[in-house]
Design a protein around this nucleic acid. Structure first.
Lengths: 142, 142
DNA sequence: ATATCGATTTAGAATAATTCCAATTATCGG
DNA sequence: CCGATAATTGGAATTATTCTAAATCGATAT
């Protein structure tokens, strides 16, 4: 089973970046892994409080930012809504369901991002490509 | 010369949506057409003041929103930065230059968006696809 | 022309998400 | 176990945007 980065490796990743492992970081990350519904910082805050009742919202923001820095989590934005957080590390796009407000991951075929990058004219060197779909999901799936 | 929608057609578009043509809407739109550098609402405000010194920021927001509703302008967001406005109606992606903060339009081959849409699993019906590149533009072009 | 009525503009207050700050507390290496 | 440094905390500050209520405008019917 690839792609599942578990707790042991979190402290490793942190150490690699010269950062410390803390309970707050561990729990924030575990909460993201447990329910992958692209929660906002507020939602993460609420969930983490179950385990760490004294954690502050500022810390949740700090931890999320740290996880993003370590490339364990992606920050996702739709319009100017609150930032959402996604621990899916595979290449994927996001589908934003305008009816429900829910966000779904859409895995991408291995070559698609390169294919898309190939439309860039000379002189443009992209180190990331983001693809966002908007519409409605007819299947009430996951 | 296609794609250039001029003032006459603005009042038409507004009328089509049951909206009125006003000096504020005209000038906001003309400012977007004149300098296509993806300005923020504040920047539009500053530019419009040259012609309409008494316009308010709230009105600029209102006008921009109206133009977006009429499909004459696209609102563009990068992370949680201020919304930027783009009067380019051709299918295009955005390249966000992380060095300069500037945004460049990247026109897309006619079939690319459909091709990208084709990766959606059954049950997902997208009515828009947004593609954002991030990186640096080596050419100091436009 | 003029009164009317809804649409539009306006200034300023309010909101929402996030960041900043200064003080306290925790963690890791020696 | 101690000290240096990093992380956490609560609250204030910031930023972009939206809301609100009043004033003004514009098209239409008279």
């Amino acid at each position: 089973m690839p792609q599942a980065i578990t707790h042991e490796s979190l402290s490793q990743r942190l150490a690699d970046s010269g950062l410390r492992s803390t309970p707050q970081r561990e729990v924030v990350y575990s909460v993201l892994l447990k329910k992958r519904d692209h929660p906002t910082a507020d939602e993460v805050f609420a969930r983490v409080k179950g385990e760490l009742p004294t954690i502050s919202l500022a810390t949740v923001y700090n931890c999320l930012e740290t996880l993003v820095q370590c490339d364990l989590v992606r920050a996702v934005n739709f319009e100017r809504g609150p930032t959402r957080y996604c621990p899916n590390l595979r290449p994927h796009a996001h589908f934003h369901d305008v009816q429900t407000g829910r966000t779904h991951d859409v895995d991408l075929p291995p070559d698609l991002l390169d294919q898309v990058k190939s439309v860039l004219p000379d002189g443009f060197d992209a180190n990331s490509v983001e693809i966002i779909f908007r519409g409605k999901a007819t299947t009430p799936a996951c």
